[in-house]
Simulated scan of single mutants.
Amino acid sequence: MESLNFRKIMRGYDPDEVDNAYAELQHKLDEANASNRELRLQINSLREQNAEWGNRLKSYEGMEKDLRDAMLSAQRVAGQVKDNAEQDAQTLLENAKNEVETLLHESTQRAEQRVAELKEEEIKTEASLNQLQDQVSELTLEKEALEIRMEKASAQLELLRQTLEL
Protein backbone atom coordinates (compact mmCIF):
# COMPACT_ATOMS: atom_id res chain seq x y z
CA MET A 1 0.00 0.00 0.00
CA GLU A 2 1.27 3.42 -0.83
CA SER A 3 2.08 5.84 1.94
CA LEU A 4 -0.24 8.77 2.43
CA ASN A 5 1.31 12.17 2.39
CA PHE A 6 -0.95 15.08 3.06
CA ARG A 7 -0.01 18.71 2.64
CA LYS A 8 -0.04 20.74 5.71
CA ILE A 9 -2.19 23.73 5.74
CA MET A 10 -2.89 26.03 8.40
CA ARG A 11 -4.99 24.08 10.64
CA GLY A 12 -3.87 20.62 9.69
CA TYR A 13 -4.18 18.60 6.49
CA ASP A 14 -6.14 19.54 3.41
CA PRO A 15 -9.61 18.09 4.02
CA ASP A 16 -10.23 17.38 0.30
CA GLU A 17 -7.08 15.33 0.02
CA VAL A 18 -7.95 13.49 3.23
CA ASP A 19 -11.48 12.86 2.00
CA ASN A 20 -10.20 11.67 -1.42
CA ALA A 21 -7.60 9.45 0.21
CA TYR A 22 -10.19 8.16 2.64
CA ALA A 23 -12.64 7.46 -0.23
CA GLU A 24 -9.92 5.71 -2.21
CA LEU A 25 -8.90 3.66 0.84
CA GLN A 26 -12.54 2.89 1.55
CA HIS A 27 -13.00 1.77 -2.05
CA LYS A 28 -9.86 -0.44 -1.87
CA LEU A 29 -10.98 -1.79 1.49
CA ASP A 30 -14.43 -2.58 0.09
CA GLU A 31 -12.83 -4.33 -2.88
CA ALA A 32 -10.51 -6.28 -0.56
CA ASN A 33 -13.44 -7.21 1.70
CA ALA A 34 -15.51 -8.29 -1.32
CA SER A 35 -12.57 -10.26 -2.67
CA ASN A 36 -12.01 -11.69 0.83
CA ARG A 37 -15.72 -12.70 1.09
CA GLU A 38 -15.56 -14.27 -2.35
CA LEU A 39 -12.39 -16.15 -1.43
CA ARG A 40 -14.03 -17.30 1.86
CA LEU A 41 -17.05 -18.49 -0.11
CA GLN A 42 -14.75 -20.33 -2.51
CA ILE A 43 -12.84 -21.80 0.45
CA ASN A 44 -16.11 -22.91 2.07
CA SER A 45 -17.30 -24.33 -1.24
CA LEU A 46 -13.97 -26.13 -1.69
CA ARG A 47 -14.20 -27.41 1.90
CA GLU A 48 -17.70 -28.72 1.22
CA GLN A 49 -16.50 -30.31 -2.02
CA ASN A 50 -13.50 -31.74 -0.20
CA ALA A 51 -15.79 -33.16 2.52
CA GLU A 52 -18.11 -34.56 -0.16
CA TRP A 53 -15.17 -36.10 -2.04
CA GLY A 54 -13.84 -37.43 1.27
CA ASN A 55 -17.22 -39.03 2.00
CA ARG A 56 -17.34 -40.46 -1.51
CA LEU A 57 -13.80 -41.75 -1.13
CA LYS A 58 -14.74 -43.42 2.18
CA SER A 59 -17.83 -44.85 0.51
CA TYR A 60 -15.75 -46.13 -2.42
CA GLU A 61 -13.15 -47.53 -0.03
CA GLY A 62 -15.96 -49.27 1.88
CA MET A 63 -17.34 -50.63 -1.40
CA GLU A 64 -13.85 -51.75 -2.43
CA LYS A 65 -13.42 -53.54 0.90
CA ASP A 66 -16.85 -55.15 0.54
CA LEU A 67 -15.99 -56.22 -3.02
CA ARG A 68 -12.65 -57.65 -1.88
CA ASP A 69 -14.37 -59.50 0.94
CA ALA A 70 -17.06 -60.76 -1.44
CA MET A 71 -14.41 -61.85 -3.95
CA LEU A 72 -12.41 -63.66 -1.28
CA SER A 73 -15.58 -65.27 0.01
CA ALA A 74 -16.55 -66.29 -3.53
CA GLN A 75 -13.07 -67.73 -4.07
CA ARG A 76 -13.35 -69.69 -0.81
CA VAL A 77 -16.81 -70.94 -1.75
CA ALA A 78 -15.60 -71.84 -5.25
CA GLY A 79 -12.68 -73.72 -3.73
CA GLN A 80 -14.99 -75.55 -1.35
CA VAL A 81 -17.42 -76.36 -4.17
CA LYS A 82 -14.53 -77.64 -6.28
CA ASP A 83 -13.16 -79.71 -3.38
CA ASN A 84 -16.63 -81.08 -2.61
CA ALA A 85 -17.19 -81.89 -6.28
CA GLU A 86 -13.84 -83.68 -6.46
CA GLN A 87 -14.64 -85.61 -3.27
CA ASP A 88 -18.11 -86.49 -4.58
CA ALA A 89 -16.61 -87.58 -7.90
CA GLN A 90 -14.00 -89.68 -6.08
CA THR A 91 -16.69 -91.22 -3.88
CA LEU A 92 -18.90 -91.95 -6.88
CA LEU A 93 -15.94 -93.47 -8.71
CA GLU A 94 -15.04 -95.65 -5.74
CA ASN A 95 -18.68 -96.70 -5.27
CA ALA A 96 -18.94 -97.50 -8.98
CA LYS A 97 -15.73 -99.56 -8.84
CA ASN A 98 -16.97 -101.40 -5.75
CA GLU A 99 -20.34 -102.05 -7.38
CA VAL A 100 -18.65 -103.29 -10.57
CA GLU A 101 -16.40 -105.56 -8.53
CA THR A 102 -19.39 -106.85 -6.57
CA LEU A 103 -21.41 -107.43 -9.74
CA LEU A 104 -18.44 -109.09 -11.42
CA HIS A 105 -17.88 -111.31 -8.40
CA GLU A 106 -21.57 -112.24 -8.19
CA SER A 107 -21.72 -112.85 -11.95
CA THR A 108 -18.60 -114.99 -11.79
CA GLN A 109 -20.03 -117.00 -8.89
CA ARG A 110 -23.34 -117.47 -10.71
CA ALA A 111 -21.53 -118.48 -13.89
CA GLU A 112 -19.33 -120.94 -11.97
CA GLN A 113 -22.40 -122.29 -10.17
CA ARG A 114 -24.27 -122.66 -13.47
CA VAL A 115 -21.24 -124.38 -15.03
CA ALA A 116 -21.14 -126.77 -12.06
CA GLU A 117 -24.88 -127.41 -12.40
CA LEU A 118 -24.49 -128.03 -16.12
CA LYS A 119 -21.59 -130.42 -15.47
CA GLU A 120 -23.74 -132.28 -12.95
CA GLU A 121 -26.57 -132.42 -15.45
CA GLU A 122 -24.11 -133.58 -18.12
CA ILE A 123 -22.82 -136.30 -15.79
CA LYS A 124 -26.39 -137.33 -14.92
CA THR A 125 -27.36 -137.22 -18.58
CA GLU A 126 -24.31 -139.29 -19.52
CA ALA A 127 -25.16 -141.74 -16.73
CA SER A 128 -28.77 -141.88 -17.93
CA LEU A 129 -27.57 -142.27 -21.51
CA ASN A 130 -25.18 -145.03 -20.47
CA GLN A 131 -27.98 -146.67 -18.51
CA LEU A 132 -30.27 -146.40 -21.51
CA GLN A 133 -27.57 -147.78 -23.77
CA ASP A 134 -27.09 -150.66 -21.35
CA GLN A 135 -30.84 -151.21 -21.32
CA VAL A 136 -30.95 -151.01 -25.10
CA SER A 137 -28.08 -153.54 -25.26
CA GLU A 138 -29.87 -155.80 -22.80
CA LEU A 139 -33.14 -155.42 -24.72
CA THR A 140 -31.32 -156.08 -27.97
CA LEU A 141 -29.86 -159.23 -26.47
CA GLU A 142 -33.26 -160.21 -25.11
CA LYS A 143 -34.80 -159.47 -28.49
CA GLU A 144 -32.20 -161.61 -30.20
CA ALA A 145 -32.77 -164.35 -27.65
CA LEU A 146 -36.52 -164.05 -28.15
CA GLU A 147 -36.11 -164.10 -31.91
CA ILE A 148 -34.04 -167.25 -31.55
CA ARG A 149 -36.65 -168.75 -29.24
CA MET A 150 -39.39 -167.66 -31.63
CA GLU A 151 -37.55 -169.25 -34.51
CA LYS A 152 -37.15 -172.42 -32.47
CA ALA A 153 -40.77 -172.25 -31.40
CA SER A 154 -41.80 -171.57 -34.97
CA ALA A 155 -39.67 -174.46 -36.12
CA GLN A 156 -41.18 -176.71 -33.46
CA LEU A 157 -44.65 -175.57 -34.45
CA GLU A 158 -43.85 -176.32 -38.01
CA LEU A 159 -42.66 -179.75 -37.00
CA LEU A 160 -45.76 -180.23 -34.96
CA ARG A 161 -47.95 -179.20 -37.81
CA GLN A 162 -46.15 -181.45 -40.11
CA THR A 163 -46.40 -184.21 -37.60
CA LEU A 164 -50.08 -183.58 -37.17
CA GLU A 165 -50.68 -183.55 -40.80
CA LEU A 166 -49.11 -186.78 -41.28
Score class of each variant (00 low, 15 high):
1 M>H: 14
25 L>F: 10
89 A>K: 14
98 N>T: 04
117 E>S: 03
140 T>V: 01
53 W>F: 12
91 T>H: 07
91 T>L: 10
11 R>S: 15
50 N>A: 12
160 L>D: 09
101 E>T: 06
133 Q>E: 12
49 Q>E: 11
147 E>S: 07
146 L>M: 09
123 I>V: 04
80 Q>H: 04
38 E>N: 11
69 D>T: 03
165 E>G: 01
56 R>D: 07
109 Q>A: 14
31 E>T: 13
164 L>F: 07
1 M>A: 10
102 T>S: 15
44 N>A: 08
116 A>L: 13
53 W>Q: 09
149 R>V: 10
16 D>V: 08
100 V>R: 15
87 Q>A: 04
162 Q>C: 04
149 R>P: 01
122 E>V: 00
33 N>I: 13
51 A>S: 06
102 T>L: 13
158 E>S: 13
138 E>F: 00
103 L>E: 13
7 R>L: 08
165 E>R: 03
22 Y>K: 14
135 Q>G: 00
90 Q>D: 06
100 V>Q: 14
1 M>K: 07
137 S>A: 03
60 Y>C: 05
157 L>I: 04
36 N>K: 09
10 M>G: 10
4 L>K: 08
160 L>K: 05
11 R>G: 14
70 A>G: 03
11 R>K: 10
61 E>G: 00
161 R>P: 01
31 E>S: 11
93 L>P: 00
84 N>G: 02
123 I>G: 00
109 Q>K: 12
93 L>I: 05
43 I>T: 03
37 R>V: 08
122 E>K: 06
111 A>P: 01
163 T>P: 00
135 Q>I: 01
118 L>I: 05
39 L>Q: 05
91 T>G: 05
66 D>T: 12
57 L>T: 15
51 A>I: 06
89 A>V: 03
74 A>Q: 09
82 K>W: 00
9 I>R: 10
132 L>N: 06
95 N>F: 04
70 A>V: 04
78 A>G: 06
130 N>D: 14
4 L>S: 13
60 Y>L: 15
93 L>C: 05
59 S>P: 01
58 K>P: 00
161 R>D: 02
60 Y>W: 05
152 K>T: 10
158 E>H: 05
8 K>V: 11
146 L>F: 11
9 I>M: 13
24 E>K: 11
79 G>L: 06
144 E>S: 09
56 R>C: 02
117 E>L: 03
68 R>S: 06
159 L>M: 12
33 N>Y: 13
49 Q>C: 02
110 R>W: 02
55 N>W: 05
22 Y>F: 14
134 D>H: 03
162 Q>L: 07
103 L>G: 02
118 L>P: 01
163 T>N: 14
74 A>V: 03
137 S>Q: 12
13 Y>C: 01
97 K>L: 07
64 E>D: 06
28 K>L: 15
69 D>M: 05
118 L>Q: 11
2 E>G: 12
149 R>E: 14
140 T>P: 00
103 L>W: 03
66 D>A: 15
136 V>P: 00
154 S>R: 07
